[in-house]
């Protein structure tokens, strides 16, 4: 602090601190605490707010267990609360998106970091960035058009003879997974790219020289080195996917429901902000726990990711 004052003077230091404090308190802490407090109170008519019925309870959180439906698992039928199922499917397809992003990003990141001519790298990065200049809504709609039953993707695949009849792409969660993968793949690419770029190329050559085949080099040298980057990419993609509302809304099918959509419905359709808040905190809490467990399993420390 005294260092800051010495460097920038009292006025600018005070201003910086105030701005940071404003951002933290007004834009992060207060809204979250408000929602958190709300989530424990029942949704009441305005006249009852603050009255005897307005007491703290876990009732809003318990609502996820309401309304079970029947499903079957390998022919064995079982009952599951519909919101729990939505949550489970959201987590599952977020994992699918994360894996898909990794499968796409890792080879590209390796290519960019170790194979591509450094001179062509700016062009490559520009090509990757240009789509980001377009609004996310438009990009989601673009995919909606591309994936349409009579859309360009089917037309192309039919023309080159890869398929014999047009495919319904936007069924179940397929459209959502494709859209989310497209939207968040760069969040996977850059951490991995940075991690691989920091790997000494001599290590790859040394492994090669010692007789390692290419897959062994990746398994033993590149992947372990890139692990923190991969982990931070995975955490970002997973959290963003699980928390995405736009893409599931646009590219979802009649049989897909994302947990964020459920939250959105509590907010906007039911106008029950209390239950919506409770659901939002369930998502936040469980995703955080899930990610922490995943990091433990893959032996990655949080401090490694921050690098």
């Amino acid at each position: 602090m005294s260092d800051l004052i010495r460097r920038y003077g009292v006025t600018i230091t005070a201003l910086m601190c105030l701005l940071v404090a404003f951002w933290l308190v007004m834009l992060v802490i207060v809204p979250n605490i408000t929602l958190f407090e709300q989530s424990f109170r029942p949704y009441l008519p305005v006249v009852d707010v603050g009255g005897p019925k307005d007491v703290y309870s876990l009732g809003n959180y318990a609502k996820v267990f309401d309304g079970s439906i029947e499903r079957s698992f390998f022919g064995i039928p079982y009952m599951i609360p519909v919101h729990v199922m939505t949550f489970g499917l959201t987590i599952w397809y977020s994992i699918v998106v994360t894996v898909a992003c990794f499968a796409l990003a890792y080879p590209l990141a390796f290519f960019m970091a170790k194979i591509a001519n450094p001179k062509s790298l700016p062009t490559l990065l520009l090509l990757l960035f240009i789509p980001l200049w377009v609004s996310e809504v438009l990009r989601a709609f673009a995919w909606w058009i591309i994936l349409a039953f009579k859309g360009p993707l089917n037309a192309l695949l039919l023309a080159i003879g890869a398929i014999e009849a047009p495919v319904r792409w936007i069924v179940d969660y397929d459209g959502v997974v494709i859209g989310l993968t497209y939207t968040y793949v760069l969040f996977m690419l850059f951490p991995i790219y940075n991690a691989i770029a920091s790997l000494d190329t001599n290590q790859i050559e040394a492994a090669d020289d010692l007789g390692a085949p290419w897959w062994k080099i990746h398994l033993r040298i590149v992947l372990p080195h890139a692990k923190p980057g991969i982990a931070s990419g995975c955490v970002m993609v997973f959290m963003l996917s699980a928390g995405s509302l736009l893409v599931p809304s646009i590219l979802g099918s009649t049989t897909s429901q994302w947990f964020t959509q459920t939250i959105d419905q509590w907010f906007k359709d039911a106008l029950d902000w209390n239950t919506a808040s409770a659901y939002a905190f369930i998502l936040l809490l469980l995703c955080t726990i899930f990610v922490s467990i995943a990091l433990k399993v893959f032996k990655v420390k949080l401090s490694d990711i921050a690098k």
Partner: peptide
């Protein structure tokens, strides 16, 4: 390199 009977010691050891 992985097919040759040579072993290289790098300047930075790697």
């Amino acid at each position: 390199p992985n097919q040759r009977p040579t072993a290289l010691i790098f300047q930075n050891l790697a």
